[in-house]
């Protein structure tokens, strides 16, 4: 009896270790498997499902290209080459350069962060785009967090399909390959042409990424207020400064549990609301704008407001905002 229990325990432990290794394979395959194919992106912001078709190519060496053929982002072309991403709307005109978010970068530590906050489980999956798959479930260990399901190609570990349910368990997004071909892709297909016109100027509402909070503070000229109580499992991921239309910069920080991300932004002031019957009421009262995709929570802070956006239970977002100094 004892031996059987021990054997079961060992088997379970083995399964957990294997699921973590599966996740690592999936994260690595995203940038290191050369392929081209067509993806369908489906998002459900309300009752209607919105679909887009996207041509995708990756050279397996850090360069990828996606072109939106249909849907709300039709015409958008994105070339990724860490640490930059180049975007162009339509077939002509300038490419706009912006930093690739860390969410798009692989890291060994990302897999362990995910495993800390999510229970991993796997099962056999169906054939997708002609490829046998394994399903990997990422179930949050804490309530109020979104849930992910991944379908991995059995030969490479590549994610062929990804689905997300929101904090309340409602379906919100799916990305899947409809067709895929593995193997080398033409460099010209995924790299920025040598003669491409790149607009490196700072657009009026640009986000500029900094390597550290200290670096952003040095540019800003004052301290950046950070919440003392982020939701359990979440850590500071990145820091940006956002250019304001009125001039000047405001800080933007992202917070991640490895899968889900929250964005904390400061506004420069509440000038727009003045003299229009706007009553703030209690200073520490949060205002919440809900949607199926994410909540937008804001709170008076300093001379302006702090705005927190994310797909997480309202109480956890409010606690985080209220923990600002």
């Amino acid at each position: 009896m004892k031996a059987a229990g021990l054997l079961l325990l060992l088997t379970l432990r083995g399964a957990v270790a294997d699921d973590l290794a599966l996740l690592r394979l999936a994260l690595t395959a995203e940038t290191k498997v050369a392929r081209r194919g067509t993806q369908t992106v489906q998002v459900q912001p309300a009752n209607t499902l919105v679909s887009s078709s996207v041509d995708f190519a990756c050279d397996g060496q850090g360069h990828s290209r996606r072109e939106h053929r249909t849907g709300p982002s039709a015409g958008l072309v994105v070339l990724s080459a860490a640490p930059w991403e180049y975007r162009r709307q339509g077939s002509s005109g300038s490419w706009f350069r912006q930093p690739l978010t860390a969410g798009a970068l692989n890291d060994l530590t990302l897999a362990s962060r995910i495993a800390t906050n999510y229970t991993l489980s796997s099962a056999a999956g169906p054939t997708l785009a002609g490829r046998p798959t394994t399903r990997l479930n990422l179930t949050p260990k804490r309530s109020g967090n979104p849930r992910r399901r991944l379908w991995l190609d059995r030969a490479s570990g590549l994610v062929l399909q990804s689905e997300t349910d929101n904090r309340d368990g409602q379906f919100i997004a799916r990305t899947r390959y409809e067709a895929i071909t593995f193997g080398p892709v033409d460099a010209a297909q995924v790299r920025l042409p040598a003669d491409a016109a790149v607009d490196r100027s700072t657009p009026p509402t640009a986000l500029v990424r900094y390597d550290s909070v200290a670096a952003a503070e040095a540019r800003l000229g004052h301290r950046i207020d950070l919440p003392s109580t982020p939701p359990a499992g979440y850590k500071l991921a990145e820091v940006y400064l956002r250019a304001c239309r009125q001039g000047g910069w405001t800080p933007v920080t992202t917070w991640s549990d490895g899968v889900n991300r929250l964005t904390l932004m400061a506004t420069s002031g509440r000038g727009q609301s003045r003299g229009r019957g706007w009553r703030w009421g209690q200073r520490r009262q949060c205002e919440v704008q809900p949607s199926r995709l994410q909540l937008v929570v804001r709170l008076a802070h300093g001379p302006g407001e702090a705005v927190l956006v994310g797909d997480l239970a309202r109480a956890q977002l409010e606690t985080m905002l209220r923990s600002l100094p």
Partner: peptide
């Protein structure tokens, strides 16, 4: 704020880079 959130926080290494593009649009 939504647009910036989608720009910096959505789409990532789990096979869904294009999702953020659609949501931002």
């Amino acid at each position: 704020y939504l647009r910036d959130h989608y720009r910096v926080s959505l789409g990532g290494p789990l096979g869904d880079a294009a999702t953020g593009d659609v949501l931002a649009a």
